[in-house]
Write a protein that binds this DNA or RNA. Structure first.
Lengths: 346, 346
DNA sequence: CTGTTAGCGCATTCAA
DNA sequence: TTGAATGCGCTAACAG
């Protein structure tokens, strides 16, 4: 009743050995470059591999060698446009070394995130990359005792762990400066969740720029969202309700900026003529929003590459200090949603 | 020099057995529900598992049982916003059965796609879900001889294969009808790659609606893109160059519609006052574009769920005919980028 | 119902 | 250099 012929059973290393007239261990050595082998045998084995179309069984290899050749990647939301390029960067960097990524998402839920981490451990991944997780530092440190960990958006230090920081605060500062230099003095901000590190840093950068320019920081011009579009729309309406006439708006991420932009459109407020709008992330869609959104570019692909590269180093047992990550600069991308303030200068 | 203490070595099934005072096989049986076990022993084992915080080694299990408990998912572009929800749907549906997805992307390249499929085979995935792949039918059929295959956007029939179709043609027809009913008679179309099945079907639906309404089909009003934003922008400029004054535009996917919308904005052509714009997919961002984009909603999440569910059935050896997939209707979402045609009625 | 015995396919000793 | 032997952790017959 069940499965009929599951097709030709897989070719095994042993068959390759037999065909090449050598022992299984020799084949294994050639496969892994574990030892020098006579050229003639290597050739014979390589031919046998090609003829049989042999592919090593990753699970058997993992069982025997204690490594699964896969590395776990924890995101909050696998379907967030923000993480996509990063995932691609990770995939690109680790796949050249024969590793495959195992993506799981925590859905912004601490318990779920812990559960997904456990799943990765059960699968014996050789390391875990955590993209701005919400697990506490202590838990992460515990994990780092068992396997290499690479984490973004946090600055932890431990033997088996590497953290990659992005200059959120500085970039937010520059974004705000951009607005100030355009002559805006009443600037509103839509921030991310208050317990989110990225959001906190961006808010801090915003505050610093304002303070430095001696501009008042009005709490009522501060709204909070959850990094999704809908919350940006809501937040903007809230801001409008204050009837404090701001002429510029700095939003903590592009998705919320889209929501805010729609709210503005609905009210007939023009961008950038009436209010200048600046986001954060530079999602692929931001170049194509109307008008194209001024924003801060996060080097998301490079971030993924860097994380994958660091993981590979860690797996090889290199100490953290040797792990060299090229600096990942955030960059202000001035497009058409911001412009010089018009009208009376205050 | 290399790895220092990799932490406490993993607890094994054998340790659990010892602790619970039973044999390993009994533990295995309890874990897999393979046979009835005396209640007292079950309890003892469950306690031991909890106390030891035991997690089965997936690789060992896979090696022994011949199943890896993971299923491969092939997409063209893991970073495409279109696939995201689908991936989530797949993850949700298969994870409840203990399976984990292995995502790989073919990057719209036949050779690469074949290579990724090979990687999945090497990892001994228990089945492969192909989201609108570009591999030819014959190759897929060959794969289906070795393992269950679920594929979208194609209608193949084979014992170990299930294909899920979405009504692209019909939906495109309805989208075009929508435009016609609004009084538009000169409608342009930006299609996807000519060798892409989805693109072909959408074009066919477009043509059918036009023919049915006795509207002329002008080839110069047909442009082609690659499903990405930039190509939409280019295509629209091409269309404009014809100086054929169309009043409505049907684009084969939302991403290209974004590009077209920007091109329109650049030329000062208003949406929807001057031209009505309709896309296809209903990406998350389409609700927040300005104006919100009229489009065809693809049930992407449900598609993923259905694909995952079908895969589970196939793995259990159920014949295809028993695989019941709820129908997945495409749906026209009328928003604000389309409106009744103004001016002289032609 | 439950314990014992064999492998699953490969990496890795240990000898030769 | 290379082959033979052993075991990774677990499932699946096979006997009780």
């Amino acid at each position: 009743m069940d499965g009929d012929g599951r097709g030709p059973s897989e070719v095994t290393l042993e068959e390759v050995a037999r065909r090449a007239g050598v022992s299984p261990s020799t084949v294994s050595r050639i496969l892994n470059g574990t030892a020098r082998v006579r050229e003639s045998k290597r050739k014979a084995v390589e031919r046998a591999i090609a003829e049989l179309d042999y592919h090593p069984n990753v699970m058997a290899r993992g069982l025997a060698g204690g490594r699964s050749m896969s590395i776990g990647v924890v995101t909050q939301d696998i379907s967030s446009p923000f993480y996509n390029e990063t995932l691609k960067g990770i995939e690109d960097s680790i796949s050249v070394a024969g590793y495959a990524p195992l993506f799981v998402s925590g859905h912004w839920n601490r318990a779920k995130e812990a559960e997904r981490m456990a799943l990765l451990v059960a699968r014996r991944v050789d390391g875990i990359i955590v993209l701005t997780g919400i697990l506490d530092d202590a838990t992460l440190l515990t994990y780092a005792q068992r396997m290499p960990i690479v984490i973004t958006g946090r600055s932890l230090r431990a033997p088996n762990l590497y953290s990659i920081q992005l200059g959120n605060e500085q970039a937010a500062y520059e974004a705000t400066r951009h607005l100030i230099e355009l002559g805006h003095s009443r600037i509103a901000h839509i921030g991310g969740p208050e317990d989110n590190v990225d959001a906190q840093e961006r808010l801090a950068g915003f505050r610093r720029a304002l303070a430095e320019a001696n501009l008042p920081m009005e709490d009522r011009l501060l709204a909070v969202g959850d990094f999704h579009e809908a919350s940006g729309l809501l937040a903007l309406n809230q801001l409008l309700d204050t009837r404090l006439n701001f002429t510029a708006l700095f939003v903590a991420n592009d998705q919320m900026a889209y929501g805010a932009r729609l709210a503005l459109y609905r009210k007939g407020i023009r961008v950038p003529e009436d209010v200048s709008l600046i986001g954060f992330d530079d999602l692929p869609g931001s170049l194509y929003s109307t008008p194209p959104l001024t924003t801060v570019r996060q080097p998301v692909y490079d971030l993924g590459k860097a994380a994958g590269g660091a993981m590979l180093q860690l797996i090889q047992g290199r100490p953290v200090s040797e792990v060299v990550i090229p600096s990942l600069p955030l960059e202000l991308i001035a497009r058409e949603s911001t412009q010089r303030r018009r009208g009376q200068s205050y």
